[in-house]
Computed example of a mutant assay.
Amino acid sequence: MTGSGRSLLHRLRHVLGDVVALVYLAICAVLTVWAVVVSVYDSSGESMAGVIPLLATAPVSLVLLVLPDHAAMLVLAIALGAVVNAAVIGWCSRALRRGPGPGPKP
């Protein structure tokens, strides 16, 4: 439990339930599926389509690129990067919608 009485999982579900975060996750999923399809049908083996979803989920996905060299690890890095970025986007969206709270009095 945290100080406000909510578990970490409940808070994560709360920020990931934001519309802006869900749109970001959907865009990342579409980019990832597109990159996989383009890479599978590229007979030359020189497709750079995987870079697009990787950059869309930076900086977390770039940090996770140190994982072992395998296609599944690339997808894992993109997925974790998308979830972390969506949580930050959801938190920011809710904070901006909430507006200024009681701040320090001058």
Rank of each mutant, 00 (worst) to 15 (best):
M1W: 07
M1R: 07
M1Q: 09
G3V: 02
S4Y: 01
S4N: 14
G5E: 03
G5I: 04
R6D: 06
S7R: 04
H10I: 00
R13S: 11
H14E: 14
L16Y: 03
G17H: 01
V20S: 09
V20Y: 11
L22G: 14
V23S: 07
L25Y: 02
A26K: 08
I27R: 00
C28F: 02
L31I: 06
W34A: 10
A35N: 07
V36H: 07
V40M: 11
Y41R: 14
Y41C: 02
G45Y: 00
G45H: 03
M48N: 12
M48R: 13
A49S: 15
A49D: 10
A49R: 06
G50E: 06
G50W: 15
V51E: 06
P53S: 11
L55G: 10
L55E: 05
A58H: 03
V60H: 01
L64P: 05
L65S: 08
P68G: 06
A71D: 04
M73F: 14
V75G: 08
I78C: 04
I78S: 08
A79K: 00
A82P: 05
V83K: 02
V84L: 14
N85H: 02
A87M: 14
V88W: 13
G90W: 14
W91D: 11
C92Y: 06
C92E: 11
C92Q: 08
